[in-house]
Every structure is written in structure tokens, then in C-alpha cells.
Design a protein around this nucleic acid. Structure first.
Lengths: 106, 106
DNA sequence: CAATCGGTTTGATGATTGTCCAACTATCCG
DNA sequence: CGGATAGTTGGACAATCATCAAACCGATTG
């Protein structure tokens, strides 16, 4: 498995971030990751009704856009929000999106 | 020309807004519209290097996502930001995106 | 070692997208 | 009216996307 790619902070692009946040499943995932930081993937994904390979795909989109940081722990993956990088690059964006999602859904 | 469709405020969906903001051309358009509110389309589009029908397409995506309000004035279209609706629905989102775009580009 | 478990990778498929071009509509000007 | 101007519409095309299914892989467990 080619070691999980994460973009460097300066390579995080706004349009790509917005695209990563333009899917209902990914918004749901991000909101959950933001709520419980540092949980295994499945614990977070829980009841979402999509195939596990689809979930894997969405996690990769979030990761490669620079939104999340995934580390390997045994046979589970731990997903964390790159809040520091994002808040520094795009102040207020993450909080606005998360608040909007909590209030209105996708 | 089927009269320009604008979603009602309560029908503006987060995911669709994010998708509308996930294209470099549309981010550029939005930033310009935000800067000079109430200008004709071409005055705003100016030097952007895409075909005029492509521009028309992007304007429609922005409009149908609820980001802009387009009115017809003679033979030109006037595009305005739906700032009140957006700020009310998704507080801080628009400003965060615009600030991010001004600082980093797309 | 064998089975299981968490998750990835690799197709395949249908839908959506961004772009251009050509034709069209509607308005304005002379 | 006839031309120019501003923009839309429809078609075509390649690229990307979300989804599923099946095979796979590495870590853990029996």
C-alpha cells in the first residue's frame, strides 16, 4: 500500500478543498471527524449507507485535498482534521462549513 | 429564454454551494462580482480566457446554487451577490471563501 | 498456520462536468 | 429595416466522479 499521501500545507488549494466539501457523504464524514477527533475510520463511518470502498474513496478525497490527516494504527486508520493548517490558510472557512452543516445538513 | 431561475432562500443547499465554489473560473467570477456589485456580465468577466458560452454556463451554476442573483437590464445581465441570504444561512462562509481566494487564489 | 478483520485497490458503469462551437434570441443603434 | 451587441441554448467531446463489487493486503486472533 503506497504510503498515504498528504499534501504539504502550502499545496492545499482552495478550489480542491471546496470540491472535497461538495459531497453530502464527505460533509457528513468531516462533521463526524471534527466531532470525535482521532477515532478509527469505521467507528466514525458507523451507519452511513455506502459501500466500504466508497467510504475509502471519500476518505482519500478528503485527505488528498488537505482536509484530513490519516495515520495507520495497527489495522485501523485514524482520521484527524488538519484544523491548524486549515485555520491558518483559510481562516474561518472550516468553522463556517461545519456550523452550516450542523444547522442545515448538506 | 426561460426566465432565469433562482432558488428560494430555504432551498439553498450547502453541498451545492460548495460545488459551485469548487471551480477556479467561478471563484474568480464570484470575487469580481463581490468587488463590484451590480455590473454587467461582460464588464465583470472582462479578460477571463474562456468562451462566452462557458462563462454563461458558470454564471448559471452560481445562480442556480443560490450564490448570485441575475437580473435582465436591456440586453445585458446584471449579477449581484445574494449576500444577505447567504450570510443568514451560512454565517461567515462567504467572507471566509472570498478572503481565502483573495489571499491564495483558487 | 488458518481465519478474520479493517481497509485499499482495481475495474466497470452511469452520471455529471467543463469546454468549445454554431446557431439562436432579444435588444439597441443608425 | 439591417446590423451590431449581449448573452443563451443545444450539441458534441473528453475528463472526472460517485458508486458498487470483487479481489487483495497486512495486522490480529484463534
Amino acid at each position: 500500500m503506497r504510503g498515504l499521501f498528504h499534501p504539504a500545507k502550502q499545496d492545499i488549494a482552495l478550489a480542491q478543498v471546496m470540491h472535497a466539501l461538495s459531497d453530502p457523504v464527505r460533509l457528513e464524514l468531516l462533521a463526524r471527524v471534527a466531532a470525535v477527533d482521532g477515532e478509527p475510520c469505521t467507528a466514525v463511518a458507523g451507519d452511513i449507507d455506502v459501500h466500504k470502498s466508497t467510504l475509502s474513496h471519500h476518505y482519500r478525497v478528503l485527505r488528498e485535498a488537505g482536509l484530513t490527516m490519516t495515520t495507520v494504527d495497527g489495522r485501523t486508520r485514524v482520521v484527524r482534521l488538519r484544523r491548524d493548517d486549515l485555520d491558518d490558510l483559510f481562516p474561518g472557512l472550516l468553522d463556517a462549513v461545519l456550523a452550516a452543516f450542523r444547522k442545515h445538513g448538506a
